[in-house]
Write a protein that binds this DNA or RNA. Sequence first.
DNA 1: GTCCAGGGCCTAC
DNA 2: GTAGGCCATGGA
Length: 222
Amino acid sequence: MTPDNLLEELYRALRAAFGHRAWWPGDTPLEIMVGAVLTQRTNWRNVEKAIAALKQAGALDARVLAEMPSERLQDLIRTAGYYRQKSARLVRLAAWLVESADGSPDGLRNVSTDRLRAELLSLNGIGPETADSILLYALDRPLFVVDAYTMRVLARHELVYPDCGYAELQDFCASQLPEDVELYKDYHAQFVELGKRCCRPRPLCASCPARPVLGEPLLEGD
DNA sequence: GTCCAGGGCCTAC
DNA sequence: GTAGGCCATGGA
C-alpha cells in the first residue's frame, strides 16, 4: 500500500461495507444549508425535528427566514440546541443568500468556489466545516468536508495526528483523491457511517472495515 | 445522573 | 497563538 492510494483503498473498503450513501439528508439546497448550521455540535435526530418544524411553518425559504422575528425562529429550532446562536446564524445566512442570489442557491452557479467560500466564512457562525458542507452538498462544489468523524477515524488509525488542523486534514484527504464532487459527497458520508459504527470512543468495533486498509486502531484516547 | 452529538466564537493568558 | 469556556437540547 503506497501512501498516495491509501484513501482510495479505504474508500473501496468502506463502500463495500456500507454501500453508496444517499446523503446529505435534505430535499433542496436551502434545506441542506439550514441543516449544515443546525447540526453544529448537535445530533442529527434533533436537527430533523427542527427542520420539520421549519417546513411546517413554511420557513424553508430564504426571504422568510431572513425576515423572521428571532423569537419565532428560536422557537421553531429549539430542539436542535444552541437555538439563540443558531437562529442568528440562519438569519445571516438567509440574508446573504437573498442579497447575493435573490434568495435562490441556484443563483450562485456563476460565482467561483473560492469567492463563495470566502463569503460564507465571513458570516459569523459559519466556519470551515459548515462552509464546506454547504459548498459540497448544497452547491456541488468539489471540497472535501472534514469533521469530527474524519478526524476521529484517521487519528484512531494513526494516519494523522489528533491535533492536526482542519485545513491540514482537508489537504491530506484531497491530495490523495481525484477531484470529484460525487466521490467527495459519498466519502464524507462513509466517514460519518464509520465513525458512528466503529470508531466510537469505546468500545472499538471488532470488525472495523477500515482495519485491513489502515491497520490496527489505537485503543486509547483521541 | 452522566455522557455525547456531523462547530464556532470569544476571552484570558 | 492557543487553551478553555460557552452555547442547549434530547437520546442512550
